[in-house]
Amino acid sequence: MNRIIMTLAATDSASEWDARYLLAISHLNFDHELHLICLPGAVESCHWKDKQWQALALYDLAGCHHINTAPPIDSTPIDWKMARLLLSENQPTLHLCHWQNMDHLRYWVPLIADHDVLLVFGQLDCSTINQIQLQYPGLLFHVVNTSQHPHIKPNEAQHINHQQWAKLIRQHQVVLTWN
């Protein structure tokens, strides 16, 4: 049986909540073992109706876990460390972040453990890269593409090309895409 862990985050938009619900139902429809992890603020910003939560419970959701606020179904309180354990069973994890802003990064950073790698893709400038380095000096991260250098320059410290990106995915058993 496929084991699926779905993270629900405060950073999700209304349409992402809709998409996640349909995806959750689809997993359950195909007998996948689905677990939900509600990250901080997720329940407060949730666009699912109570009936949709009830539907997931009715259709044999394998487990629900929450950090801080509980959803309106049976759910186990956990902390970031436990969330990370559920997601990756403590294997080195590649975190994929489609760049939004520093707040988004700060929200997800607690899931990064030692020996994990963060890969940021999207539009971010050099000052932002410096900011990340200053705030998280021990963080091993790579950047694909920037607004200043739309053509990838693999010689720059954090910059990698798409082949290196694919290699990183192959090297990691667990890849977590941030919502």
């Binding site: 689809s26 429809n29 949709q52 009830q54 539907a55 009715l58 259709y59």
Partner: peptide, 15 residues
């Protein structure tokens, strides 16, 4: 009434 939607086929059959 319970869930706000009609479920996909396999879930419907289970129910």
């Amino acid at each position: 009434d319970e869930t706000g939607d009609t479920p996909p086929m396999r879930l419907l059959i289970k129910q």
